[in-house]
């Protein structure tokens, strides 16, 4: 067994998702290699050398990998793949963009959103918005997996740095190019790593009112999330959407404010340790998955809460 983990990064710092993928990889093998592909990303490669359990960091630095374009990256990984039994990435929008394409190049059926690894070829993944779990056995010669970040902790830092191996492989397919990127800068912690997440729904009514949610999140040094309805209404940007097709979170404390609890939303948060729901409607589905619930008007209760905390 030998595992290749695809590093996720922004060319300057390594995303914690990579450490989660390494943890998943450790359940498969003791031989873990991390691939850092990017442009001017040596700092990232150095950070990747410092992960417990990683034997080697492969480092491909070229302009064509700078924007993480799926076409060039999948081609690069497909060239490295024969040396490995498993190729793993976190199922972020990055991993989900690249690994299925890699599956096509390797003639392999990828397994998405793995939440548990039972053996080198048996995996558990949620289906139907998490209403069901499927145990899947893969017969492929190379297993291509995306793993659910919330199901695997971040691997620790290692005592010493592992080997770094620069690659001289440049695949510029010329199929796509970046025009621009709009990254939302926020002083809140990242949704995936925050220990507390406060989410707001359509009941907030406007982006101004969403400040109530932001202020409550701040009290806990938490992150802000939202339901699809709140994002569709334009109250908050798309990257805050939690659910079946958005972000997956599993914080220690999840506070749902004015969220009815459609099954598609629950799919993204029901693994949270403690769930608290605030909703005006006593029949709201969110109460069914909550440890604590209070039936109340959020516009009355949020300011009161803020004053007490």
């Amino acid at each position: 067994m030998s595992v290749l983990v695809l590093a996720q990064h922004d060319n300057s710092s390594l995303d914690g998702a990579t450490r989660r993928a390494v943890t998943a990889g450790k359940q498969l093998s003791n031989s873990i290699t991390v691939l850092v592909a990017g442009g001017d990303c040596e700092a990232v490669a150095q950070q990747a050398r410092n992960i417990e359990g990683v034997k080697t960091v492969l480092y491909a630095d070229a302009k064509c990998y700078r924007e993480h374009l799926a076409e060039n990256l999948a081609k690069l990984i497909s060239e490295l793949a024969p040396d490995f039994t498993h190729i793993v990435a976190v199922g972020s929008t990055f991993g989900k963009n690249v690994l299925p394409r890699l599956g096509a190049l390797l003639n392999v059926q990828p397994i998405s959103d793995v939440v548990a690894i039972e053996s080198e070829n048996i995996f558990v993944r949620p289906i139907y918005a998490g209403d069901l779990l499927a145990r899947i056995q893969s017969e492929d010669h190379i297993k291509v997996l995306t793993v659910r970040g919330t199901a695997f902790d971040e691997a620790e830092k290692s005592v010493s740095l592992c080997a770094l191996e620069p690659l001289n492989k440049v695949f510029e397919l010329g199929l796509s190019e970046l025009v621009k990127r709009q990254i939302t800068l926020s002083d809140c912690p990242d949704l995936e790593t925050a220990r507390v997440v406060v989410s707001g729904g359509k009941a907030l009514g406007s982006s101004e009112n969403f400040n109530l949610v932001y202020r409550l999140a701040k009290k806990f040094n938490g992150a802000v999330g939202a339901s699809r309805a709140a994002v569709d209404a334009g109250f908050v940007p798309n990257e805050l959407q939690i659910g079946q097709t958005g972000r997956m979170v599993a914080p220690n404390l999840y506070i749902a404010v004015g969220i009815s609890g459609a099954v598609q939303h629950l799919a993204g948060m029901k693994d949270s340790k403690v769930v608290v729901a605030i909703n005006k409607d006593p029949d709201a589905a969110i109460f069914g998955v909550s440890d604590y619930g209070i039936v109340a008007d959020l516009f009355e209760i949020l300011p009161e809460l803020e004053a007490h905390l």
Binding site: L69, L175, S176, V179, Q182, E239
Partner: peptide, 12 residues
């Protein structure tokens, strides 16, 4: 729509 915002690509 990506995890940290929006990204515009030009494709052939």
């Amino acid at each position: 729509e990506v995890d940290d915002g929006l990204e515009v690509l030009r494709l052939k």
